[in-house]
Amino acid sequence: MAGDALSDLLKTVRLTGATFFDIEGHDPWAVHSPAPASILPKVLPGADHLISYHVVTAGHCFARIIGDEPIPMEAGEVVVFTRSDPHIMSSHPDLRADPPTTDVLDIATAGRMPFYINCAGGGSRSVRLVCGYLACDALPFNPLLEALPPAIKAGDARSDGGWLGQFIRLAVSEVAEKRAGSETVLTKLSELMFVDVLRRYVESLPPQQTGWLAGLRDPHLGKALALIHDRPAYNWTVEALARESALSRTVLAERFTKIVGMPPMHYLAKWRMQIASQLLSAGNSNVASVAAEIGYESEAAFSRAFKKMIGVPPSAWRLGVRTGAGSGSDEASETEG
């Protein structure tokens, strides 16, 4: 059941692949990826969060968030920068790189994927990378992003088994052959690759880890989260969730708050508003129908709760107004719904 909550979240926050690069590096080389604010408007306008990734298909290199320690990378490994912090990929850990000009992004977004970049340093080829960006919604509530570290490294340089190995083979094939539909294949492959990296990260978490992903791994909390995601409009109480999750009311409330980071009813309220924001943004439902779909008995009660938590009324959010989002109270009264 825990996997259902993860899948549901990824659908609700609209995870999507955006841009795909084929990079060949000849020593010495270094490539700088700028801040998300300069990339998002060009690769996926309308999204509010950017994730970047780099898969080493041949050779070796280093990945480094500006100001952090370098991460050594070998063929068969992937690094995902979950916040797309400015970072450098390079042949040596101490190499610097100038941020790319806007012309590079303009050319990339105007052309056909994958975009080939030859980092010619004058020496022999030391690496081949397939890189790209994923975008998703961070507002009003994306517990996954809050649970992830800035960088995740996954894979096994000694083996091409598993999904990452398959991703590399398929990506290399699509890059080389450029068949019809390759852009769609590459973007979907990147989404699947990210999900596999998330699975590997969850499996590697230490027992004492807290956060949303740690909650998914806990059999009882995973059940409670899956129930909330599966039936958000249901009139859940802590007692009902505890009964379905095979825990006492007190134990569920304490464990949920300690590991997930908020009480169960608070999580339910925030998840309802995430669903509501997505439905409103889609523009296919009016405020009253959205209120009913997430479990509110009246449009007025829903509108009050939405504005209290999100910072803007539902009607404003539907029109694309985000000013004030996240500035409202984190609490939304579930007794009104």
Rank of each mutant, 00 (worst) to 15 (best):
M1H: 07
L6Y: 02
S7W: 07
L15M: 13
G17V: 05
T19H: 02
D22A: 15
I23S: 09
W29D: 04
H32T: 06
H32G: 01
P34K: 06
A35Q: 11
P36A: 04
I39F: 03
V43G: 02
L44K: 09
P45Y: 07
P45R: 10
G46E: 10
G46N: 12
I51T: 10
C61F: 06
P70I: 08
E77D: 08
E77K: 09
R83D: 14
P86A: 08
H87I: 03
P93W: 04
P93I: 11
P99N: 07
T101W: 02
T101R: 02
I107R: 01
A110M: 04
G111E: 09
C119M: 14
A120R: 13
G121S: 07
G123A: 05
R125N: 11
R125I: 07
R125T: 09
S126A: 13
Y133H: 08
L134F: 02
C136S: 12
D137K: 13
L144Y: 02
L145S: 14
A151E: 08
A154Q: 03
G155K: 08
D156N: 15
R158D: 14
S159I: 03
G161I: 09
Q166E: 13
V172M: 12
E174V: 05
G181L: 09
E183W: 03
E183H: 10
T184H: 13
V185A: 14
T187M: 07
S190M: 02
S190H: 04
P206S: 13
Q209V: 07
G211E: 07
D218R: 00
L225Y: 00
L227D: 00
I228E: 00
R231G: 05
P232D: 06
P232I: 08
N235W: 05
L241G: 01
L241H: 00
R249E: 14
G261V: 07
M262R: 09
P264G: 03
Y267W: 10
K270I: 00
R272Q: 09
Q274E: 15
A276Q: 05
S277L: 05
A282Y: 07
S285C: 02
A288H: 12
S289Q: 15
S289L: 14
A292H: 12
S298E: 03
A301G: 14
A301Y: 05
S303T: 15
S303M: 11
R304L: 14
F306G: 09
F306A: 11
I310E: 04
A316H: 12
A316S: 14
R318S: 15
T323H: 12
S327N: 11
